[in-house]
Design a protein around this nucleic acid. Structure first.
Lengths: 230, 230
DNA sequence: AATTTGACATACCAATCGGTATGAACTAAA
DNA sequence: TTTAGTTCATACCGATTGGTATGTCAAATT
């Protein structure tokens, strides 16, 4: 899944000819697959996977079905690729990577929540969490989707769990909290809050729920002065 | 919701003759609309609204499009009716009605959670909460759906909020809890837990999250002996 | 008895869906 | 230069979709 890192900057010098300016070859050829992936992600984020239209996806890229079915075997395969190559990466970059670098997961999570509450755009508020959207729609319908999304959720919970355990060792987290169930409750609550705010189209409700989560997180803090780090 | 018990055993006998025994008119006529409603609810619960097929819905009822478009103006109108006449009733009966009768909302909520955890069928676990499903799918797409579903959520939150306020007056709930934001967080967390358990297809995860919610509810209790009621 | 209205069934429609077959343009290898 | 393999575009397919127009029969109304 990480093999796409190897995409070359200038793959071939082929882009300069065709006697004057082949728009397609000049700009997008090497990115055709990524274009489709991103457009598919957007389309799915807007209308869900089942209602996602391949024609609309392609219309947004300027490509045609020939390109799509050259890179992806089917609509389902395209959907899987969106999860594997985009959704999972977003999750890791936004939620998991920051947690790996800290011994104070509570502080880090609160920081992430604040950052999200401040930076979230109206459109994203209305569209909700793409991971949760896809999970709620496709989990009962397609086992392939369900397994991939469950793997993502599992990784998410696992990341929080191990961060909480590290936090306990470092003295930032109370020792009587069960890391595993706390991680599960945290993820579930965050997704639930985003979903509720999405339906209400209310940033205020999102912030309200966010404060509830932060309050919950604060209750997990260890208050001894055993270690005081900046 | 349980009215479907009265559906006739001999589903297709209606075509046996018009002039001596019209099965349809004899038994099911008044229920045709409710049959379609219930079948639509099931179909939507299984595949979502957009992917819901009118043909499949009708196939499950034995009726035809003539009946459907006689009672409902469009697929959208059918979807709205499902929300207004079925979903909202479920919500009120299962979650809101019990709360109205008690002065100890925490006890009541914990009881409801236990009941749900014990009685939930595997199929319902996999399909998730129909209200949440519909909200996550349709809120960004159709304003009519969104408003109706938001009205439902608002009623849900409001019911919990006023129950919490009554609980405070009666001395069962701590006075420093903010009823409104607590109600919002509770609903969001419950939906989030159901959604997460649905994706994981794990009753264990559902129970785990449920314990997390109960733990949160316990923290809202007032522990004075001011009033001790059975 | 005659007529209207309600409650459906039947047959059909254009539009859209995901998917495929074929071929053109181009590159890399021989 | 020839050949083989990529990378797409074009044109088309059957299936399914929501929706409609018309017809039929029973009950209600006049």
């Amino acid at each position: 899944m990480h093999l796409t890192e190897t995409k070359p900057e200038i793959k071939h010098s082929k882009r300069f000819w065709h006697w004057w300016q082949c728009q397609r070859c000049a700009t997008g050829k090497v990115q055709a697959r990524e274009q489709i992936l991103q457009a598919a992600f957007d389309e799915i984020h807007h209308v869900g996977f089942q209602a996602a239209s391949l024609s609309r996806i392609l219309a947004h890229t300027g490509l045609t079905k020939g390109a799509l079915y050259h890179h992806f075997g089917s609509k389902l395969a395209l959907g899987y690729a969106v999860v594997d190559e985009l959704l999972l990466e977003y999750l890791r970059e936004i939620w998991l990577r920051p947690l790996e670098k800290t011994d104070d997961p509570i502080k880090q999570l609160i920081s992430s929540l604040h950052k999200m509450g401040e930076n979230i755009r109206q459109e994203d508020l209305e569209l909700g969490c793409p991971l949760n959207n896809l999970a709620q729609e496709m989990a009962p319908i397609d086992e392939g989707f369900r397994r991939r999304l469950e793997a993502a959720y599992s990784e998410w919970r696992g990341g929080i769990e191990s961060a909480l355990l590290r936090g306990q060792k470092s003295g930032f987290v109370r020792h009587d909290v069960d890391a595993k169930s706390t991680a599960a409750t945290l993820v579930a609550t965050m997704e639930g809050c985003i979903g509720m705010a999405k339906n209400a189209q209310s940033r205020e409700l999102l912030l309200q729920c966010g404060r509830g989560i932060i309050q919950y997180l604060e209750s997990l803090k260890k208050h001894t002065r055993k270690r005081k780090v900046t």
